[in-house]
Design a protein around this nucleic acid. Structure first.
Length: 486
DNA sequence: ATGTCC
């Protein structure tokens, strides 16, 4: 991942913002803006993230600036941590700007339990969670969807699981887009369907995880209370996962479609991985419908997982999940493209915003936010790495003005998987986490080594950069005490 | 991220 160091211009705008001017390369159509502290930006200079950002700035119909968030690093075509908006009529759409794991995202539950209730039972709880939520590459769930059920999942998203009794009535209002985007499964390949059918309710591998956490610090009491976070010591549950093999196959299938579209529409690209098509084309319509199917699959997946998490807590604590207060805080998508409206240079424009490793962060009053949170801003959930912290933030009007209503999505890798593997063994990491009061159970020890805390940037510095830049406000910090990994 | 190469 460490390639050649960035040699181009990077002008500091203020403490947490930097600019690569359009004049840097003839093919750029707009400026690039880089968010992050000096330390984080220095890290970004060492992989190809900034060159990739410049490539994004060359794409047809780009509106406003091409952006990267403070946790950005190299990705497929577009940098992970990238945000780019394209005109809804004259712009393009690109699967590489969404990512392979369509609607990879994060969901947070609050509980009435405290650290004192949970610590004596944490080993049992983590074991129960490990068995309730299958994890690892290729893992299959208890449910095996039929062809028609898979279509229902792709069409209805989280609502499918709620209809089957897998959730609380109040869950739906606490998800981005209510856990369902308008979709049509007509263009989903047979292979994608076959990969999707057995995988519903599974966590996957890599940086995906399920965590039992303790509220460690509250930064904004008013917003925290609105989100259901009342006190330090309170227990939360976080799940980070996506659309599994289903979304991966949808992305793979449409990258091929887009390679042909690049020829057909005569689009010139600085990197083949930016394959895209005009947003007004038939290919775009088919990708968007299919991407939304995968997004819906991911919301249903997280809904089934959380249903099984609630059942596990019920078994361990001998009370219903309602009695344990296991209500949703929110569910965010951090790999997705969506049509939204922004005022650019005084003109209102409809754009398709690509967020790839970036979280929507709408501010107070935005009509797109469900009314339960409209007064305080949208909850933003930022998973860190195992062994440190995760954060709960809130969106801002500054984000809507500056960053197409977007903020960071996590810590961001700083070591390649290969480099991380050389540093320590998974079993030693599990022991050292245990010494720090974190019980971890994983399907594969190799994944633990690849995902070690030192493989990631400092999530606190990422979050502080977003807070400092005004594109999110800090609400609470969450510390893991139990982790399930792939 | 991913039946980590159909």
């Amino acid at each position: 991942m460490a390639d050649k160091e960035w040699q181009g211009p990077l002008e500091q705008i203020d403490e947490y913002r930097w600019r690569i001017p359009r004049s840097y390369r003839d093919d750029m159509r707009t400026d690039c803006i880089v968010y992050g502290s000096e330390t984080l930006v220095q890290q970004m200079r060492k992989d190809n993230a900034l060159e990739q950002l410049v490539n994004v700035a060359t794409l047809p119909g780009i509106v406003g600036n091409a952006l990267v968030m403070p946790d950005a690093h190299w990705g497929y075509g577009f940098p992970i941590g990238g945000v780019a908006a394209f005109d809804a009529v004259e712009g393009i759409i690109s699967p590489g700007g969404v990512g392979y794991d369509i609607n990879c995202g994060v969901r947070l539950l609050r509980t009435d339990l405290t650290k004192d209730d949970v610590l004596p039972k944490i080993e049992t709880l983590v074991n129960q969670l490990f068995h309730a939520v299958p994890s690892g590459t290729g893992s299959e769930g208890v449910l095996k969807l039929s062809d028609s059920e898979l279509e229902e999942v792709a069409h209805d998203g989280a609502e499918w699981a709620l209809r089957k009794g897998m959730g609380m009535e109040t869950d739906a209002a606490r998800m981005e887009a209510n856990g369902r985007l308008p979709s049509d499964p007509s263009y989903i390949s047979k292979r994608a369907r076959e990969r999707g059918r057995p995988q519903i309710g599974t966590l996957g591998s890599g940086n995906h995880f399920l965590e039992v956490q303790v509220v460690d610090t509250v930064y904004d009491e008013k917003i925290a209370r609105a989100f259901g976070i009342e006190q330090v010591g309170q227990i939360t549950v976080m799940v980070h996962c996506g659309s599994r093999g289903f979304g991966h196959q949808v992305c793979t299938d449409f990258l091929e479609v887009m390679q042909r579209a690049v020829q057909k529409y005569g689009i010139s690209l600085p990197d083949r991985q930016l394959a895209c098509c005009p947003v007004a084309s038939e290919e775009a319509a088919q990708y968007l419908k299919s991407m939304n199917c995968a997004a819906n699959y991911a919301w249903a997946n997280r809904q089934v997982i959380i249903h099984n998490v609630r059942r596990a807590f019920e078994r361990v604590f001998g009370k219903s999940s309602e009695a344990l207060g296991m209500r949703m805080v929110y569910d965010v998508a951090h790999n997705i493209a969506k049509f939204e409206e922004y005022e650019i240079d005084g003109v209102k424009r409809k754009v398709i915003v690509h967020r790839k490793g970036a979280t929507r962060a709408f501010g107070p009053g935005n009509p797109e936010i469900n009314e339960v949170y409209r007064g305080v801003g949208q909850p933003v959930i930022v998973p860190g790495d195992m062994g440190t912290y995760s954060y709960l933030l809130a969106g801002t009007q500054t984000a809507e003005q500056q960053s197409f209503g977007s903020t960071c999505h996590g810590a961001g890798r700083q070591l390649s998987r290969h480099a991380a593997l050389k540093r320590a063994k998974g079993s030693d990491l599990i022991k050292s986490l245990k010494d720090q009061g974190i019980v971890l159970k994983a399907r594969e020890h190799r994944t633990v080594a690849e995902e070690a805390p030192y493989a990631y940037k400092d999530v606190s510095e990422v979050v502080d950069s977003c807070h400092g830049a005004g594109i999110a406000v800090k609400v609470a910090r969450l510390r893991p005490i139990g982790v399930v990994k792939g």
